[in-house]
């Protein structure tokens, strides 16, 4: 690893100031569970690391019925996994966190750091997309808020400018009659996912679909929301046939990259299986 300078700002304001000063020469470290590996490989050589791991200002989980949940970016995966508020209002989020990487990673790694690294197989983004989450970004010119699905740009690249940080994840309250499911495919349990799928359905009183969300990981350079597949369900009663139709459309949207573990066709095929399974599971929660 190359030498770098180090600073641990005490506030968000101070963090932005440092970033504005150093720009491209600075890199943020939170839990560093991915970043340190990259630094050790000398694939990146920042002049200064800006450590926000202990930035308590961004370490919180709150909930109210009107605005839903707010999770500070430096909240650890473990805190999300075990939060009574998360368990009560978004059990699927806790469930996902419970199987994210290893206990060690969850204990030290942060939810914000995970999103910012933008590993295309990441677990967190699809479920947040399904939950209609938004992210709050803070920069020298104030705040901006984006839907989760607009946060990622490419492999390991997000919309964040050099002087911006991801500050908060906002998840609206879940509408009544909503079912949400997420699961991922791995060859080795307790290992990183190959592909995964999150599906959320909200039903009208008459049982027709008021809203659907489908998002996958490992199927494109970024977490993939698939509106065309979602559209299949709108206003209709969800049936197996409809699910099959959506799955096919979802498959069309996927651009899987082959790697040493699996081919692109295989990944797509399994991702489709997971979309189907999660759709059925989500539906089963409300029927």
């Amino acid at each position: 690893m190359r030498d770098f300078d180090y600073i641990a700002p005490k506030t968000v304001e101070e963090t932005i100031k440092v970033l504005s000063e150093y720009k491209d020469d600075a890199k943020i470290i939170a839990g560093g569970q991915s970043l340190l590996n990259i630094l050790k490989q000398d694939l990146m050589a920042p002049e200064i690391l800006v450590d926000i791991k202990n930035l308590s200002e961004l370490d919180y989980i709150t909930y109210d019925d009107k605005d839903g949940m707010k999770i500070g970016a430096t909240t650890t995966h473990h805190a999300v996994e075990t939060s009574p508020l998360v368990l009560e209002h978004y059990p699927i989020l806790a469930e996902m966190e419970h199987t994210l990487a290893f206990p060690q990673t969850r204990n030290w790694g942060t939810i914000g750091g995970n999103l910012c690294i933008q590993d295309p197989t990441g677990d967190v983004a699809p479920i947040l997309i399904a939950l209609k989450a938004t992210v709050k970004i803070v920069g020298p010119n104030g705040e901006r808020t984006l839907p989760m699905e607009d946060f990622s740009v490419d492999y390991y690249e997000t919309v964040l400018e050099e002087d911006e940080i991801l500050a908060e994840i906002q998840i609206p309250a879940v509408a009544p009659k909503t079912g949400i499911a997420y699961s991922k495919f791995r060859i080795v349990e307790g290992d990183a996912p190959i592909v995964g799928a999150a599906v959320a359905f909200t039903l009208n009183e008459d049982g027709t679909c008021a809203d659907a969300r489908i998002a996958t990981n490992g199927t494109a350079p970024i977490p993939l929301r698939i509106p065309d597949a979602e559209a299949v369900f709108k206003g209709k009663k969800i049936t197996d046939a409809l699910i099959e139709e959506a799955v096919e459309i979802a498959g069309e949207a996927m651009e899987c990259i082959p790697d040493i573990v699996a081919s692109d066709e295989y990944k797509k095929r399994v991702a489709k299986v997971y979309v189907k399974r999660m759709a059925k599971k989500a539906l089963s929660q409300i029927q």
């Binding site: 080795v188 990183a192 040493i260």
Partner: peptide, 22 residues
């Protein structure tokens, strides 16, 4: 896995050993 003699997964991240849950 090798490609032209180059090992593509020389780490415990990419070389998949069985873990306790498996």
């Amino acid at each position: 896995v090798t490609d032209q003699g180059k090992i593509l997964n020389p780490s415990f991240v990419d070389y998949k050993l069985m873990r306790a849950p498996d």
